[in-house]
């Protein structure tokens, strides 16, 4: 059913919070996503021309890098992981003619049912974030599942029930949780760090949030003026080592 579930206030909204302040752009999340999903419920994630001239393949998560100018942090390089944001009002779901694309009422996860997708690609056109990719081998659409086959997987120990990309991220720049609950760890993090939606102007109300880069400073007094050339040892140095030392 591609009509969107009625959003109940306080309903669970599972999603990711990605910290652009610490993302080093290592692609770990992208590859672990590929690995998990390749053998998981959405698998395989095909590769095309894997040893040839145009290596290409299907990924649910891709890591860009940008150089930015202006903004709170000034001139800076920003690594930017891009995957499905599990939007609250995603057109990728409503445009789907078959009901293959759907948003789960219970947790907001947006999924594709591979058994009924006709591969019309319209959902990928409807996604402003480029989050859906077409499986050229199976001729159906695939996308990030928020690792639905991990986060609820009862065969996994409790601690491991988190998305593969979150588990692998070496700088721990990825967080997973319920953004519908204002008191969840992720919601508090978003609040504390001023987490943002991507392209809010499109009106999709993404669930995922990105934490903007920040800039730590060490406050110091006014930097002392250089000594005149040739003065040799400064008084401060001399007085310092004049202090009684004891081994």
């Amino acid at each position: 059913m591609t009509s969107l579930p009625q959003p109940a206030p306080g309903a669970t909204k599972l999603g990711l919070v990605i910290d652009l302040d610490t993302c080093v752009g290592c692609h770990a999340c992208a590859v672990s996503c590929k690995e998990w999903n390749h053998g998981g419920a959405s698998g395989p994630l095909p590769d095309y021309d894997s040893r040839g001239a145009n290596p290409d393949g299907l990924w649910f998560n891709r890591i860009h890098s940008y150089e930015t100018e202006g903004g709170a942090c000034g001139s800076r390089t920003v690594n930017f992981p891009r995957s499905c944001l599990h939007c609250e009002e995603p057109q990728c779901v409503t445009v789907c003619p078959t009901g293959a694309s759907y948003k789960r009422a219970e947790d907001g996860i947006v999924l594709v049912n591979p058994d009924i997708c006709i591969g019309c690609k319209l959902c990928s056109w409807a996604c402003p974030y480029g989050a859906r990719e077409f499986d050229e081998d199976e001729s159906i659409m695939k996308k990030c599942t928020l690792c639905v086959d991990r986060i609820y997987n009862e065969t996994l120990p409790e601690a491991e029930r988190e998305p593969a990309c979150v588990a692998s991220c070496p700088s721990r720049a990825r967080h997973f949780g319920d953004l519908g609950d204002p008191n969840s760890a992720v919601s508090l993090l978003v609040l504390a760090r001023g987490g943002v939606e991507l392209m809010p102007e499109l009106g999709y109300k993404p669930t995922n949030r990105y934490l903007p880069p920040r800039k730590a400073v060490v406050p110091t007094g006014p930097v002392e003026k250089p000594l005149r050339a040739g003065t040799g040892f400064s008084a401060s140095l001399l007085s310092l080592v004049d202090r009684v030392l004891s081994r």
């Binding site: 692609h27 145009n54 290409d56 891709r62 930015t68 903004g71």
Partner: peptide
């Protein structure tokens, strides 16, 4: 990319060759 008030320029694509 969620960096308000900044201009951004791509440095590197995620994958070098084509994609969907």
């Amino acid at each position: 990319i969620g960096i308000r008030g900044a201009t951004a320029r791509p440095l590197d694509k995620p994958h070098f060759t084509q994609n969907y």
